[in-house]
Design a protein around this nucleic acid. Structure first.
Length: 924
RNA sequence: GCUCUGGUGGUGGAACUGGUAGACACGCAGGACUUAAAAUCCUGUGACCCUUACAGGUCGUGCGGGUUCGAUUCCCGCCCGGAGUACCA
């Protein structure tokens, strides 16, 4: 019987779906394991061959763990709110929900074709009201919470209110807005409820604030940072302005420290952790206040990580946008400062970042007083100081900082040496911390380590500042002026945001006539007719950003159909957290950071158990496109093969990779590929047309997109699964190249043939297996176990090939061997193994409930070993010796052997190293 | 610039804690089957030298050093590729 993969695969996919084979339920008798894939955005183009790479790996892991006795949760769903569907809606008027439905259906078909063991009964889609109901609910919890620095966790806003009632704002150590009021308990009680609400908004973990957004007037919408390229919209190329808008934000900065520390407790790839560390950007230093010479009531606060260099500070620099600039600028300098500010505004953010070399700035005319020595220093503005970082002001120490140095040289400002080890200050700054201080008043002669505490103490004594830890992390804006997202469950009463009632959830996304902003620039939701809270109050018109739903979805899978809670206590206590999370590293500072933030918040509020949501993370590499090219002789319809192209004037054209195999063009298919090629002629090399190739992004326009459905049609899903793994290590990026796929396909056929005789009859014997057969089997049992547990899937595919080659050579058709091999292979190739499993007489669909075979090392024990014998580290010969021989005996035999004697040439060896069962090295 | 990665045959890649470099597969070459081709099967395949053959030798894991009986693996310095990030004070 031939291996008819198409029939077999369809048959078992149907069986699994009809019998709910892959559905799981809480089972307290088994240990749980949670394997999660980052859920996809269902785009209109469908899956290409690169998307399933991670899913295949996680599927193998899931099936393996099930065989090992774990109860494995392995769900899938869709991150279904997003821009492409909305953009399509704008163009066509088609409701994004319809597009999304179509796309998810298509994705589902494609995923099903690959034979994944997902529990589809738990599917979630972030755009479904019964899902986003809970996204809104979490938003409400955040609104009703504040962050208490004393307990270092979020608490209900009620605890804050009751403290306000009893003792006012005194002793409150919260993460909050800058300008909070101080008030007594009486003052609080005397406040109008409106005033109280306003005050509380400054503490809530989600709050309204003025924030700068990328506004594109032509598109009439706000764009995310990655949709803006060089100051223009990526789509359409329209100019983008910075605009201040009242926006919802999330106080993620409250968790900065915990997000940083938590990284040390999780098993994630180092690059991702590093990216998060940089993103959070913790730096230790001090804030220092410089009083203004002209007005000693005003001061400029700077942040520095080098307080020790303060005696070398010869000027201050403010960001051009700094709020004090207008106030301190002298009349004489006003024109210059204004001009500079205008110039800065005109520069795009990107220009400001890339053009690092050009020094520019302007003097405000004002002076400030260095609190340490009373020296007066000029105050400048310059665009190398960023308004958004630290306090937007720096003390410039040209001798120690390269940028300050360039600035000082350019504007001829003084440069003071502060450490005796600093050298070459005529040419460049020297940021050293070595040596002893000079020109530094009371720290002269001290080292860095000794000086720092002295300076901090002095600073506090003068109340001119304090040691401070600064973070780069900013609160994240939590609103988009878009249609296709979760509505924010808030309405406005007298301009004050109010939550809707919990029982009114979900707040459904209303229908609109068009998916564009209104004439007056309000978000699309403003178009919804009669959409008012209780028919009276204006709803929030922004929707939530793309990362809202993905910041908690893994909990929903635990109890996806629950109408009363986001997940039941029982489900959360059982499934707890994600043991293995597989996805791309592009989410390092977005999704993966927000998820950790929400998870910590939910933990603080007692809804979940773990501080960290994803114990282990693996980044699968990307599958890149591999394009093929043909070479047309200019002005003709002749195509010249790759090796001969240099002899002609040619034009390079992409050709569909699906009509090229091993870089050889299928000429007949090529003639049909495009009408203009129907009469193409060819200049061949050894009778074949060789194509050129290059690695590029997989994209339609490059004709290098490979659809998994096509591969499955031609080779089968099991081959696709194994081939994607065979391609190389999971974490590595690699171009898709079908050059080797026939090897995997051959392997599966060879495997199949083990079970059939020459006439094609199923033929498995019950004879007791030979030692060699058992050895083959147990080698693979051990190897797959080791490989899967270290996520080295490519190496087990090779080992399967070796095993089947060995068993084929042994003509092994013994049940005792083959049945265990079927189980071992089943995570990789579930369809063929399920078929053979049932042919072996097992109950249909019971393969997943089988147990992984127990590895017995005794089958691998050898009584002899072929020792490689090296002379001076070079292998010269091999000697087959009994493994019972002790090193001394091995040495004796080796030295007596004729070959070694020849090399010794009468001399006696300097040294002989014998590693039992490994190697012998004779040093002469 | 900084951080993280990686560099092994014609190609994808093996080599788990220092112990036979190149497993497995593709490709290529030769052969078998076939009227022929495809498919399939068998053999060979790191480079170079030597040899009729058997065999043997030299060089080889980006480059240069080091540690070691022994280094793709460990240490130091450099070169190149990929990813991330950046006037972060």
């Amino acid at each position: 019987m031939d291996y008819k993969f198409n029939e077999i695969e369809k048959k078992w996919q149907k069986f699994w779906a009809e019998n709910g084979t892959n559905e799981v339920a809480i089972d307290k008798n088994k240990p749980k394991y949670y394997v999660l894939d980052m859920f996809p955005y269902p785009s209109g183009v469908g899956l290409h061959v690169g998307h399933p790479l991670g899913y295949i790996a996680s599927d193998i892991f899931t099936r393996y763990k099930r065989l090992k006795g774990f109860n494995v949760l392995h769900p899938m769903g869709y991150d279904a709110f997003g821009l492409p569907a909305e953009q399509y809606a704008i163009q066509t008027g088609q409701h994004p929900a319809i597009t999304t439905d179509q796309n998810t259906k298509r994705y589902r078909e494609q995923l099903d074709n690959i034979g994944f063991a997902f529990d589809w009964s738990r599917q979630v889609r972030t755009c479904d009201p019964d899902f986003y109901k809970w996204t809104q609910w979490i938003f409400m919890q955040l609104f009703n919470a504040w962050y208490n620095n004393d307990t270092d966790k979020a608490e209900s806003i009620d605890t804050l209110i009751s403290r306000f009632k009893t003792s006012g704002s005194q002793g409150i150590n919260a993460v909050c807005d800058e300008e909070t009021k101080s008030f007594s308990a009486d003052e609080w009680t005397a406040m109008s409820s409106e005033k109280q609400q306003k005050e509380l908004l400054k503490y809530r973990l989600t709050y309204l604030s003025e924030a700068v957004v990328n506004w594109c007037p032509q598109l009439g919408t706000v764009l995310a940072n990655d949709e803006v390229k060089d100051g223009f919209s990526e789509r359409g190329g329209f100019p983008v302005e910075q605009k201040k808008m009242l926006q919802w934000s999330m106080r993620i900065t409250a968790y900065a420290d915990r997000l940083l520390k938590g990284l040390d407790t999780i098993d994630w790839p180092e690059p991702v952790k590093e990216m998060q560390r940089n993103w959070i950007g913790r730096s230790e230093g001090a804030s220092v206040k410089f009083k203004l010479e002209a007005d000693s009531d005003s001061e400029i606060e700077v942040f520095t990580t080098r307080l020790d260099t303060i005696f070398g500070a010869t000027f201050l620099v403010l960001a051009p946008e700094h709020e004090l600039v207008a106030k301190i600028t002298t009349d004489g300098q006003k024109a210059e400062i204004d001009a500079y500010q205008v110039k800065t505004k005109a520069k795009s953010e990107r220009d400001r970042m890339t053009d690092v070399k050009t020094v520019s700035g302007a003097f405000t005319g004002a002076y400030a007083i260095n609190p340490m020595n009373g020296e007066k220093v000029p105050v400048w503005i310059a665009d190398y100081v960023l308004a958004g970082y630290g306090t937007g002001a720096v003390m410039a120490v040209p001798s120690g900082d390269e940028r300050d140095y360039r600035f000082a040289k350019h504007f001829d400002l003084p440069i003071i040496q502060i450490l005796d080890t600093q050298n070459n200050l005529e040419a460049e700054a020297d940021p050293t911390k070595e040596g002893h201080y000079v020109n530094s008043d009371f720290i002269n002669g001290l080292t860095y380590k000794d000086a720092l505490p002295v300076l901090v103490a002095k600073l506090e004594e003068l109340s001119a500042g304090k040691a401070k830890i600064n973070f780069r992390l900013r609160d994240s804006i939590f609103a988009r002026q878009r249609y296709w997202g979760e509505p924010v469950p808030v309405y406005f009463n007298n301009g004050l945001p109010q939550l809707i009632e919990e029982k009114e959830l979900p707040l459904l996304l209303p229908d609109v006539d068009k998916y564009l902003p209104t004439e007056s620039g309000e978000p699309p939701l403003a178009r919804a007719e009669g959409w008012k809270y209780h028919g009276e109050f204006e709803y929030e018109l922004s929707t939530m950003p793309g990362w809202a739903g993905s910041s908690w979805y893994w909990y929903r899978y635990m109890d996806a159909r629950n109408d009363n809670e986001f997940a039941s206590r029982e489900a959360i206590d059982y499934w707890n957290d994600v043991d293995l999370y597989i996805g791309g590293s592009e989410h390092a500072t977005g999704h993966l950071l927000y998820s950790r933030f929400w998870n910590k918040f939910l933990k603080d509020m007692g809804y979940v158990n773990e501080e960290e949501p994803f114990k282990k993370l693996i980044n699968q590499g990307h599958i890149q496109g591999r394009s093929n090219f043909v070479y047309r002789v200019i002005g003709t319809n002749q195509f010249v093969s790759y090796g001969l192209k240099s002899q002609y004037g040619i034009q390079v054209l992409h050709v569909d990779v699906n009509i090229v195999q091993n870089d050889i063009l299928d000429i007949d298919k090529f003639r049909k590929f495009l009408p203009e090629y129907a009469d193409a002629e060819f200049i061949l090399e050894d009778g074949k047309y060789h194509c050129g190739h290059e690695v590029e992004k997989m994209s339609k326009s490059k004709y290098n997109v490979v659809n998994p459905d096509d591969i499955i049609e031609q080779y089968g899903a099991d081959t696709l699964r194994m081939y994607e793994m065979f391609l190389g290590p999971l974490e590595q990026s690699k171009p898709w190249n079908t050059n080797g796929i026939s090897g995997v396909s051959n392997f599966l056929r060879k495997f199949w043939n083990l079970f059939f005789d020459e006439k094609g009859n199923f033929n498995v014997s019950d004879v007791t297996p030979e030692k060699a057969e058992l050895k083959s089997l147990h080698k693979i049992i051990q190897k797959v176990q080791e490989d899967v547990e270290r996520f080295s899937f490519n190496t087990s595919v090779s080992s399967f090939m070796i095993c089947v080659n060995e068993l084929t050579a042994l003509k092994c058709n013994k049940r005792a061997i083959l049945q265990d091999l079927v189980i071992t292979l089943s995570p990789y190739a579930p369809h063929i193994t399920e078929e053979l499993w049932s042919l072996l007489g097992n109950e249909k669909g019971s393969l997943l409930k089988a147990s992984y075979p127990v590895f017995k090392p005794e089958y691998l024990v050898e009584d002899s070993f072929e020792y490689p014998v090296s002379i001076n580290g070079k292998v010269r010969m091999k000697l087959n010796l009994s493994l019972t021989l002790e090193p001394a005996e091995v040495e004796k035999v080796v030295l007596e052997s004729a070959d070694v004697q020849k090399h010794l040439d009468g001399k006696s060896p300097k040294k002989v190293i014998v590693v039992k069962g490994r190697i012998v090295n004779v040093v002469i």
